[in-house]
Design a protein around this nucleic acid. Structure first.
Length: 560
RNA sequence: CGGGGCGUGGCGCAGCCUGGUAGCGCGCUCGCUUUGGGAGCGAGAGGUCCCGGGUUCGAAUCCCGGCGCCCCGACCA
């Protein structure tokens, strides 16, 4: 029974002054969410309905691949977090109980689920397992932002797979791909599954699910048949025109030219014909000189993965003696290993001369300096993959899947005995989805100047029924009956029975964004036709009064 | 963590510079009128001006300290 006259749906004409993201503005204006503090949001009834619809889709698809739902405490003893070393993470909320025992608020549940599995699983016969929950997570984010997109408390579907070996993990991983593809398809958002960084934590494979939209915090590189997080994306660079080769490097006076732009202009060569020198300190390895084309940028995530070590830019002091003065450094004569980006083709380049106010022309990799080659640059729009042009879009990360391996099982003693009686570590995967981000992404992707246009599957209501009449009138009697008939058709109907004018009702209906609006007024009864508005595109249609409820239900089933 | 901005009825804002009755629009309550795209008239309710301290006869306003929130960047296991 959802009559708007008695339903808590506080809509606003004006967005909160401090809101920036569209989903933030519209979700507040539509009466779905209210803020309590930085990164802390209450879901009001209609907003919570949407969230629950998304959760239900997730449940159904997780169950379909054999996932078993459980529930683990949010409040955790610190001990398992200490055993995996993650107690050190700044984002973890830490507290003490009255006895002074250290506790943490879980930001995810690898430690806890693995602790239980370690206690319970003994034999290879107990594996594999897929366990999941939909539970609150707490993260002390340095900067919560954009409404519900990045919060300090949020619900997350987190799943964990436990397998006998890598082959088993591959199967569990593949199952999650099936489930996730279906979840995001059913939710009605546009999404891409992209390769992502596995990080330094021993993971072997990882993908993220990305929903393109302006408010996104991530960037994805997309080409037909290719999708990757910008952090790890690879592509073929556009060719660059190089000057004619020289028999040996020639020094040029370039006073004050410390940027690629300065140098390329002064020497009259394309920025891509200059080599950008980027000295870094690799943990446990020391100074490395990274070279990329002047029109490219060094990607520190790829660099870290290539060097298998944490990397930071070197300071001028750290490279002054081994290489040269800041602003004029280059590979020729550098006393440091050189990593040359794969996009640097054969030919003569301009590089720093390792002498203040001078550059070298005609420097050829190999002939003039030794190097190792690696792919360490960011891809750029206009690069290509398999001959197809690459584009870069911002996106919201709505899910991720990750092959963990044995990092947690080893730290927490999750072992089993195999067929030959040998003790082995359980091989794990973890799989997350943020339902709130699906909701926000749906708003970002599906809205217009009037408000939200929900995908049918996650809309707060299937139909909003608007009656234009006050008091006991013929229209209202008709609308009351139609309301019941629509409900009998299985539709979830919001009935705007308020004593308000038509303009206000229409505006609120379009703001809230149910896929269909049905209007009953004088005009309806006089004309013998019911007016229907499809929210997407605000297209209007008419249906005969006779059998209207059935026709509305049929129309609803055809919507995206 | 670096940079910037903002805290005044439910929402959006003015007032602050130059100290002296807290104001506007929307919303809310009551009455009458109005009813197919955010109505009209009239009468009302509602504010510790973020908090603490200081200056002053007097502080929303000036000074000091704190807190909160937002945006950009860094970070995001």
């Amino acid at each position: 029974m959802t009559r708007l006259s008695s339903y808590l749906l506080p809509t606003e004409k004006q967005a909160p002054a401090d809101a920036e993201a569209i989903s933030h503005k519209l979700m507040v204006r539509a009466g779905l969410i209210r803020q309590l503090g930085a990164g802390l949001w209450t879901y009001l009834p209609a907003g919570w309905k949407i969230h629950r619809k998304v959760e239900q889709i997730i449940r159904e698809e997780m169950d379909a691949i054999g996932g078993q739902e459980l529930l683990m405490p949010l409040l955790n003893p610190a001990e398992p977090w200490r055993r995996t070393g993650r107690i050190e993470i700044d984002e973890i909320f830490k507290l003490e109980d009255r006895k002074g025992t250290e506790m943490v608020l879980a930001m995810t549940h690898e430690e806890i689920v693995t602790t239980h599995v370690a206690q319970v699983v003994r034999s290879y016969r107990d594996l594999p397992q897929i366990l999941y929950q939909i539970q609150v997570k707490e993260r002390d984010e340095p900067r919560p932002r954009a409404g519900v997109l990045r919060t300090r408390e949020f619900r997350m579907k987190d799943a964990y797979s436990f397998d006998r070996d890598e082959a088993g993990l591959d199967e569990s991983y593949a199952k999650h791909i099936v489930a996730y593809d279906r979840i995001f398809d059913r939710s009605g958002v546009e999404w891409y599954r992209v390769q992502s960084d596995v990080g330094m934590m021993g993971g072997t494979d990882a993908h993220e699910y990305m929903a393109p939209c302006a408010a996104g915090e991530d960037e994805v590189a997309l080409a037909p048949g290719y999708a990757a997080n910008l952090e790890v994306a690879s592509a073929d660079a556009q060719a660059v025109e190089l000057p004619a080769p020289l028999p040996q490097p020639v020094e040029e006076h370039t006073p004050g030219c410390t940027t690629v732009e300065d140098v390329s202009r002064r020497l009259g060569v394309a920025p891509g014909a200059v080599l950008k020198a980027f000295p870094v300190i690799a943990e446990g390895r020391g100074l490395v000189l990274v070279l990329v084309r002047g029109d490219h940028r060094v990607n520190e995530v790829k660099l870290r993965n290539v060097l298998r070590a944490n990397v930071r830019p070197a300071t001028a002091d750290e490279f002054a003696t081994k290489i040269g003065p800041a602003g004029f450094i280059g590979p020729v004569g550098a006393n440091a290993p050189i990593l040359l980006d794969e996009a640097v083709g054969d030919g003569g380049y301009v590089t720093g001369a390792n002498r203040a106010d001078f550059h070298l022309r005609g420097v050829e990799p190999g002939r003039d300096f030794p190097f190792e080659r690696a792919d360490v640059r960011f891809v750029e729009p206009g690069d290509s993959v398999g001959g197809q042009p690459l584009r870069i879009e911002s996106a919201i990360e709505i899910g991720n899947i990750f092959k963990l391996g044995t990092r947690y099982s080893e730290a927490l003693g999750a072992h089993y005995l195999d067929e030959s009686g040998r003790q082995r570590a359980i091989v794990m995967g973890c799989y997350g989805i943020g339902p709130a981000r699906i909701v926000a992404a749906a708003v970002e992707q599906h809205h217009d100047e009037a408000g939200i246009a929900w995908p049918r599957a996650i809309a707060p209501f299937d139909v909003e029924l608007v009656v234009i009449a006050r008091g006991e009138t013929e229209e209202r009697t008709f609308a009351d009956r139609l309301y019941e008939e629509l409900r009998e058709q299985g539709l979830d109907v919001l009935y705007d029975d308020r004593d308000a004018g038509p303009g206000e009702k229409f505006a609120d209906a379009e703001l809230l964004g149910a896929p269909l609006r049905v209007t009953v007024g004088k005009r309806t009864l006089a004309g013998g036709e019911l007016e229907i508005q499809l929210r997407r595109g605000r297209e209007r249609r008419s249906l005969p009064l006779d059998g209207a409820a059935v026709a509305v239900a049929e129309l609803w089933r055809t919507l995206p």
